[in-house]
């Protein structure tokens, strides 16, 4: 029997769903599964029982809590799809809106992080899901396979002055050869999970951390990381770094 899938969007940009639809293997994926609920391609009245639920987007309204509880009840396994569902996502930058990851309210069986998830990784995840296997996430951080990683010196001092390189200074691929941190540009690679194939870095932009933390939570990793480096005056006031993809769980 084909595994039944429920694919649901909460508060999100639907970027993850778009990525899903545009995956090379999407047609084959559709052949091997049975879609129960996927409003983008199919009209459905209610969320029915299924083997696997993929949930995209964060929880920003009370009603959504009941919704995901219902999803959890009717699915054998629930997976968070995309950074919003895994950690809270970009909406965390908002002052007024709530942006909670699924795991705050229900138990999840795994996650597919990324904003949106990189296609190769996403594809592998889907293959695993169809085969009733777990999703394998790297346990290392981005530096492990970073094309810019050079030798590391003891006592090297990092001073950060910029969040992004100036547009005219962006170097692509081969031209770019030095670690962003050494050039005073904040790169969250050290605290971000490996697995995205370093797309941003290859395009001359520092890592923003969308793959989420490997261990602990996003906020404490950022605080730990920044406590080691010197920030320029203006950046010290910029709190967006801490909330980029996740709000601190400190508020009860």
């Amino acid at each position: 029997m084909k595994p039944r899938f429920n694919i649901i969007s909460l508060t999100s940009c639907t970027g993850c769903i778009s990525t899903l639809i545009s995956l090379d293997i999407f047609p084959q994926f559709l052949e091997r599964i049975k879609i129960n609920y996927f409003l983008f391609i199919l009209d459905s009245d209610d969320i029915e029982e299924c083997e696997i639920a993929l949930v995209e987007g964060c929880i920003s309204e009370e009603t959504q809590i009941n919704l995901i509880r219902k999803i959890r009840k009717r699915a054998k396994r629930v997976f968070a799809l995309g950074t919003c569902a895994c950690f809270g996502g970009i909406l965390s930058l908002s002052n007024s809106k709530k942006a909670e990851p699924l795991s705050n309210h229900i138990e999840i069986d795994g996650m597919i992080p990324g904003c949106p998830p990189p296609s190769k990784f996403f594809g592998n995840c889907l293959i695993n899901l169809v085969g009733n296997k777990d999703i394998i996430l790297s346990e290392k951080n981005m530096c492990a396979n970073c094309p810019l990683r050079g030798s590391i010196e003891i006592n090297s001092h990092i001073k950060i002055t910029k969040i992004n390189p100036n547009p005219e200074e962006i170097r692509l691929g081969e031209e770019n050869s030095e670690c962003f941190l050494n050039n005073g540009i904040l790169c969250l690679g050290p605290i971000t999970r490996d697995g995205c194939e370093h797309k941003c870095i290859k395009m001359g932009l520092p890592c923003e951390g969308c793959m989420g933390p490997v261990s602990k939570d996003f906020t404490s990793n950022v605080v730990n990381f920044l406590s080691l480096i010197e920030l320029s005056q203006e950046l010290q006031k910029y709190t967006g770094i801490y909330n980029r993809f996740s709000k601190p769980k400190i508020n009860r």
């Binding site: 290392k140 981005m142 530096c143 492990a144 690679g189 050290p190 490997v214 990381f225």
Partner: peptide, 10 residues
């Protein structure tokens, strides 16, 4: 698990 980011060295 080590990604060799070198934060510990610092």
């Amino acid at each position: 698990k080590c990604g060799l980011c070198g934060l510990c060295l610092k």
